[in-house]
Amino acid sequence: MSLKAPPSPAETGGGRGGRAPRPVSRRSGLARLGPLPWIAPVILLILFVVVWPVVELIRTSFLRVSSSGKVRGSAGTDKYTKLFGETDLASVLMWTVIWTVVVVVCTMLISLALAQLFNQRFPGRTVTRWALIAPWAASVLMTAIGFKWMLNQTAGVLNTLMLDLGLIDKSEDWLGRSETAWPWMMAVAVFVSLPFTTYTLLAGLQTIPGEVYEASRIDGAGTWQTYRHITLPMLRPAFLIGLVINLINVFNSFPIIYAMTKGGPGNDTSTSMVFMYTLKETDIGESAAMSVVNFVLVVVLVLIFLKVSRWNEED
């Protein structure tokens, strides 16, 4: 909606380097405390609600916890050894990567198109934009349950529709096999990621001044050229925000797969997040170890991304 050409926080920092950095004033009272009164509430809330459970999680990954939940003592690194010995781990990690890449790439591409479309003037623009919000407003869990219902073999409306259109000749159990379950779940993941991404890009588009386009037209640039050489580069900040948020969210995505297949049969449709959750049923310590691995993966993923996209580059 309104990430007005959002300069990333880091970029702002860089930009500020240009303006004379305003020295923290040496006055008395609050000012003496510097940033603390301003940022301490955020830090406290994060420490209290996020960091503390993270510490707890890491601790648990080195514990022997019985299936009843009782802590029986230290496990050393046994749970990590056990985790890395799981036969399904390799395929789970591979599918996690495929899932993240496919969903994020499709989301970004489709959102670019949608943002262009909904940035045009046409009758009913406001109303159609509201429709775009639905998958965002509805909880992901409910949307996923809804799709599971529509894909049901016995009575799902999507099966009925495809039968009537002659696309399939008998009702399919789409979510029962990994080969058909993955594409459907990816489609749902894209579906629920589109609104936020599209709105981010829409906001980005609206900050591009009209004169830039005029100038380009006068220069005789074609539509596609204009898009490639003017729109896309100017969209970069908004695009990057959408990309990072989607990377993190899709990688960590849990409700879609959990609601639609529970990661099964076996672990055939599990990403690392779902795998972690189902491990909880059999070994809480191992599940915690998986969470830790999962977290390391997402941090590495995002850091690599930031490096590659030169997100942090000073202007």
Binding site: P9, A10, G13, P35, I39, V42, I43, I46, F48, V49, V50, W52, P53, V54, V55, E56, L57, T60, I245, I248, N252, F254, M273, M276, Y277, I284, A288, S291, N294, F295, V298, V299, V302
Partner: peptide, 25 residues
Amino acid sequence: KLFLLLVLVTQMFQPTALLVGLYRE
């Protein structure tokens, strides 16, 4: 920078992974 990094890292955590810790707390 550290503050911004802390914030960014927070974004990467999903409560799903931290339920036991939250419950205990």
